[in-house]
Design a protein around this nucleic acid. Structure first.
Lengths: 296, 296
DNA sequence: CAAATGGGTGAGAAATCCTCACCTGTCCGA
DNA sequence: TCGGACAGGTGAGGATTTCTCACCCATTTG
């Protein structure tokens, strides 16, 4: 058929002009300059070989042909806009998947700063426990805990994991070997690791409270249920608010939190911006005075 | 709202691809190269941040998002095409207004040559007796008989009018003053003019047949009703076919046929092409051996 | 396995679109 | 009736879009 399609922008300009009567108002509605609108109309008229608008005094009126054209189009432009809108909304947002603990204690407190710097980007934080399939689910990127050696995935290290024991200030404590430790089911090896690396006497405590995951462990510690072994970066706000205190030195682990991106993120540029910002945040000193164990 | 409209071409490409399954076929349907179609799809996907088509073997399939997008658009593209089609059809054609006689005896016999040279231009010849209002009616140009001094209109002379007497071969004739002349109501001054300029003896015949216009006068002469005084250029085909013979010398008038264009023709370039061609045709020798009276 | 077929890509040219600066014409109050 | 404010039109210039061409890669098929 090879039917030369007219410029959609020109038609949209005509439509807007029909509704707003004035070029100025129509241009503003379309988010373009008055001059651009004038050009659009003129070009459309040349393209279709017909006068479509006339000026009578200050208001622009459509000619019969212009009116007929718009009438024949019906709401075609609106249909297209509506059809495309969901995809465009999705495009403005970045879906970031991560685990609860990191989201609650590190990411979410910092996110407002990113929002202020990029008001046009909306970030949807999806918190899960399991590791999401980056390409299977509708997720643009993730922050994952591990060694960064996932096959086929390029990971950028944000920061290495650390472990530091902390507890509510009111908790009465004896020697480390007597601590009422809180252990997360998935991280049973953390306490022995810390015990060994900090050369504590005796065995790592094996009893105490067991909870499902690290987020719950932190909650339990905040509630005064015992001593939690957690990442130093999660403590910032709690220390500042006096809800927890540090009980020993910080150790660094081999593993770390990495930023990984889906093979085909919806909006790569926005994801890039987020990645850069996350790297900066991760490399910034966690908090003034850290690690507190150093001065102890 | 400032909603970024997507590219209509991209959407049309997606639509065509959905129907034709193959990029090649879709591209051909749209009248663009395969490469262009591929670019269009890729750009649309980048613009909307979503994969819209997948290739499985040899056929391209839409993804769910692509299908949903097309479904949501409905027939919006078709609506736009249909709305624009009448204007585009009108754009391909030139409306030329002229009088019956010229159309039948000079223009129409030559027009096929122009058509062959410009197959994409369609010419609508509107024949009237009255002089049309060039800007009031939907006419792009006209061929007018006169002095070329119409106010506010730029006229290009095609050829000067001529007058030559002719009649059917079978008609028995005496001296000119005895001729059974045919006169058109609007052109009563033609016979005296010819009489005077060719220095015929006596008075110009005032009796004889009177018809409405020159076209009818020529018809009457062809039917053997008498002697018509007509433009030499109208005789070409009739002389060649032996339907008429020339009875006296050709005289040239001050007036002529002019090409005039509407102030805003639908497609100025096509009208230009027609104008140039008409000028060439007008200045070409009317026919080999003209004027025949010269050799008489 | 080679040719044929179909799709993807990069370069570069052409067309489209936008803004800016600057006109012109209209309206309105002093 | 005169200026200023307002509205629209225009041309230059630059960014973006869109096209084709030439080429590459993958799949199918003889």
């Amino acid at each position: 058929m090879s039917s030369n399609l007219p410029s959609l922008r020109g038609l949209a300009a005509l439509d807007a002009l029909a509704r707003h009567k004035r070029q100025g108002a129509a241009a503003e509605a379309l988010g373009i300059s008055r001059s651009a609108l004038s050009h659009r109309i003129a070009d459309l008229e040349a393209e279709l070989g017909a006068r479509l608008v006339t000026r009578s005094g200050r208001v622009s009126m459509l000619t019969d042909e212009g009116t007929a054209l718009l009438a024949a189009m019906g709401d075609a432009i609106g249909r297209i806009e509506a059809a495309v809108a969901p995809l465009q909304r999705r495009l403005r947002q970045i879906r970031l998947s991560t685990v609860n603990t990191l989201a609650a204690n590190w990411l979410l407190p910092r996110l407002p700063r990113f929002q202020r710097a990029h008001p046009d980007i909306e970030i949807a934080v999806l918190t899960t426990q399991r590791v999401v399939d980056l390409d299977g689910e509708d997720v643009d990127c993730a922050i994952r805990n591990g060694m960064g050696d996932w096959p086929g995935i390029q990971a950028r290290l944000l920061f290495r994991e650390t472990l530091v024991p902390a507890a509510a200030p009111g908790l009465a404590l004896g020697r480390p070997s007597d601590w009422p430790v809180i252990r997360a089911r998935a991280r049973f090896r953390d306490w022995p690791l810390w015990w060994q690396q900090t050369r504590q006497k005796g065995e790592a405590p094996a009893g105490g409270m067991v909870v499902e995951n690290r987020a719950q462990a932190l909650e339990a510690a905040l509630a005064g249920a015992g001593v939690v072994l957690t990442d130093a970066r999660y403590l910032d706000t709690h220390l500042a608010a006096g809800r927890l205190r540090v009980l020993g030195p910080v150790i660094a682990l081999e593993s770390g939190f990495h930023f990984v991106r889906s093979r085909a993120p919806r909006n790569p540029r926005n994801v890039d911006a987020l990645a850069r910002w996350l790297e900066d945040e991760g490399q910034a000193a966690p908090q003034a005075g850290w690690p507190p164990g150093a001065s102890d």
